[in-house]
């Protein structure tokens, strides 16, 4: 089984079977460090501790950089150490995600916003018509 398949099964278990949100799922597979958690607000601290404790064995410590498609959108996520690269660009209502900034600029030379998400910080993109 490839890493991609393993991660897909993990996401499926967490989101579909356990009913976790995409953000909550990200907080499991790319759980923040305990030191980071301890600096959060009490409610957030409790939430993150709960997730990290309840689904401890689904924490992926190896480096990864994934794009996950779901009905209605896309999720991009880096491992919590951000050992893999990932860059997100925006122009108008278009969103570009790639490993390298150069790739985005080839597609869209006048990209308006471009940034590199932190490790473990999910970037969730949803199609506009769903929101109306």
């Amino acid at each position: 089984m490839t890493d991609t398949e393993v991660i897909t099964y993990i996401v499926d278990f967490l989101v579909r079977k356990q009913g976790l949100s995409l953000t909550e799922m990200s907080n499991v597979i790319a759980a923040p460090f305990w030191s980071t958690i301890s600096r959060k607000e009490p409610a957030e601290r409790e939430r993150l501790s709960y997730l990290r404790n309840a689904f401890a064995s689904l924490l992926i410590t190896g480096p990864f950089s994934i794009l996950l498609g779901f009905e209605g959108g896309l999720l991009a996520l880096n491992d919590r150490l951000k050992l893999r690269s990932m860059v997100v660009g925006e122009k108008g209502d278009m969103v570009y995600i790639a490993s390298e900034e150069a790739a985005i600029r080839v597609i869209e030379p006048n990209v308006e916003r471009i940034w590199s998400p932190r490790g473990g910080e999910p970037v969730i993109v949803t199609l506009d018509h769903l929101h109306k």
């Binding site: 939430r47 709960y50 309840a54």
Partner: peptide
């Protein structure tokens, strides 16, 4: 460890640990 996640009325996770 909990087998299922529980949520309160406004969808927040209930720490059933």
């Amino acid at each position: 460890k909990p087998t299922h996640v529980k949520r309160d009325s406004n969808g927040r996770l209930v720490p059933n640990l």
